[in-house]
Design a protein around this nucleic acid. Structure first.
Lengths: 256, 256
DNA sequence: TTTAATAAGTGTTTTTTTGACACTAATTAA
DNA sequence: TTAATTAGTGTCAAAAAAACACTTATTAAA
């Protein structure tokens, strides 16, 4: 069995963290440099932040701990979206050396509980991970080959995100505290991968009641300064989770 | 470790099977009679159909195997909806004797991957399980205290079902091959726990294209006989799954 | 054989939501 | 002063949703 009795060698958690910055949706990945015995140069590997769950640890807490340990991100609302359990999901030869370097029991069959989150990539301060590992943001259009079945997990998360955004107001964690209507629209356009009508978008967002118009305006831009808005978080205080199951009044729907 | 090396003592799967019969939404449960040393009568315990996953087995397949072994139901489309991982979820004293009777390693921390399905309770043929166990349908309003955290799992499934029904045409597995519009409406009203307007319901359902009107009508009822309908299954043949992600044309939505 | 009871079936109108569409306003840089 | 840039605004038409009440076909009972 495991050399470390507090670690459960059969259950892991992986985090798909989406971040929005510079009008681009990005994915948070762990990059590792691994010496290649053959070529004498370092191979670069990417993976989702993820690790084994402790035996006495709740899944949600495990996901937060793992994310925090690997990237420095703390207190992020993570939403579980799927568990992946292909018995061969970690056994591909390409993943073997990595697996051996991070697992005490590299042959264990491990299922992973996947979480996702949406955060403001600009506000997130990434801590350097342990040696030879670092956390990096990559645009979702440039996600490389990832370890294990992480590409599949990422694709699933992206699909779930696109569906979610259709029926719930999102963006709470995705934008700065104060943001302009254009930033918000740009976020939706990025996630949905299509253009939206400016006037219709504004009308719908304002009618939904999730936005609070602030008196403050942009400064120092060489065009008409935009008004800032913030999210009306009070609306969601009483709900168990923050962006799922939040249809405002049972009938909220964006861009059906 | 496990005495049976092919069983993973840390991962289980539980199935929340909803069935619809006699205008009532029902839950499929396993009932066990366990001798009580103190009272000399049998205690009756209920639980969701569930068991440990094999070490070389895909999660989806495991859920189907477990369901089939415990209830006789085969080939049912099961949809994963959440994993539950409270470290104390199986450790309550009330569950101890049961746990010891079904687990080789009753102290293992076990996370469970929960699946749900909707089927026609009348069509489902329940096989008697192994000795002292049987599968029974109970109306969801009469679900008793269940083993482990199964009440929580059930509540979660019900909530997920209510959300799902809002955006997708469901009922494929929930009603007989031929059904009347009233039966279908009754199903929706049961799941949503609210009344729907008859005319608006019929219009929406017919416009959606998911129903095929049959020429056959009810016989032997002491009122105007209702027309039968069947589902247009062809619409869904090409989709990976049968009632999720099926917004008909990207914008299908019932009773928003 | 008539009547009562029951659930099925049927349209219209109003209200709400959506989608398409083009110009003016405020600011800075040149 | 002018040019460039992005913010901000309203209307109309089409589609979807919601509200609403009477007639019809059948059996059971009188």
């Amino acid at each position: 069995m495991s050399l470390n009795p507090s670690i459960n060698p059969h259950v892991s958690t992986d985090c798909v963290i989406f971040g929005f910055s510079q009008d681009t949706l990005r994915l948070l990945l762990i990059r590792r440099s691994i010496p290649n015995r053959l070529t004498d140069v370092n191979d670069i590997h990417y993976a989702l932040p993820g690790d084994l769950v402790r035996d006495d640890e709740d899944l949600d807490k495990a996901a937060n701990r793992v994310l925090s340990e690997l990237t420095g991100l703390k207190g992020i609302y993570l939403e579980q979206f799927h568990s992946f359990g292909d018995p061969l999901r970690v056994t591909k030869p390409k993943d073997r050396s990595w697996l051996e370097s991070v697992r005490q029991n590299p042959d264990a069959r491990v299922i992973t509980v996947a979480y996702m989150a949406l955060i403001d990539a600009n506000k997130a301060v990434l801590q350097p991970g342990s040696f030879s590992k670092e956390a990096v943001w990559l645009p979702i259009s440039e996600v490389p080959e990832l370890a294990f079945d992480h590409n599949e997990i990422f694709e699933n998360a992206l699909k779930a995100l696109k569906e979610k955004v259709q029926i719930q107001p999102i963006g709470f964690e995705l934008l700065p505290e104060k943001f302009t209507m254009s930033q918000l629209q740009s976020l939706y356009e990025t996630i949905l991968e299509r253009d939206l009508d400016k006037r219709n978008f504004r009308r719908k967002m304002l009618n939904s009641g999730v936005l609070i118009p602030l008196s403050e305006k942009q400064l120092g831009v060489s065009n008409k300064p935009a008004r800032f808005y913030s999210f009306n978080r009070d609306l969601f205080e009483n709900s168990d989770n923050r962006y799922l199951n939040l249809r405002m009044d049972g009938s909220f729907s964006l861009f059906g």
